[in-house]
Amino acid sequence: MTRIKRDSIAYVLIIVFCIVMLGWGIPANTPDYPGYGAPSDLVPNVSVSVMLFMACLSLFYTAIAIYLKKHIPSAEREFPEDLKDGGGFTQVGRINLFHLGAIMLPCVLLLPAIEYLGYIPASIAFLMALQYVIGCRNWVQSIVVSLALTATLYVVMRYGFGVPVPGPQLF
């Protein structure tokens, strides 16, 4: 998929989001107008309308450029990783869904795990899984880092700030 196609899909998704928000999300989730002041849906409607207008404008602009077969600058057409200069400091680029999923999955699983197993076992398992995903195959290092980090944050939170760690308490 080219960058310009991906950006166009993003604009379409934003337009759909804005229409859903304007048609249902905002009206169904804002209080009724009390009769004074500005209506509570005014600012949300304005902000979503600005998004909708900008997304439509960008999509229209891109469509016209493609239709008229104008030369779209390479910085807008291609991904920075394909450009000769690499695009400078930009973080724009292709989405690596596998990588994103690999990092997000242990983080998402940590939420229920910490509630049911408790902070210490869930955190140790999470950190070991995370290090494995990152590429660490040294088990000794992985265990030492997991134990040290879990214990340090436990002590800092429990005794430094007096905040109970999430899940069942150990001490």
Binding site: N29, P31, P34, Y36, G37, S40, V43, P44, S47
Partner: peptide
């Protein structure tokens, strides 16, 4: 839009 989630200042009722 995300900043407006919460209690609406005039009605003090939940919004979004």
């Amino acid at each position: 839009l995300f900043g407006l989630i919460g209690t609406e200042p005039v009605t003090a009722l939940p919004r979004l």
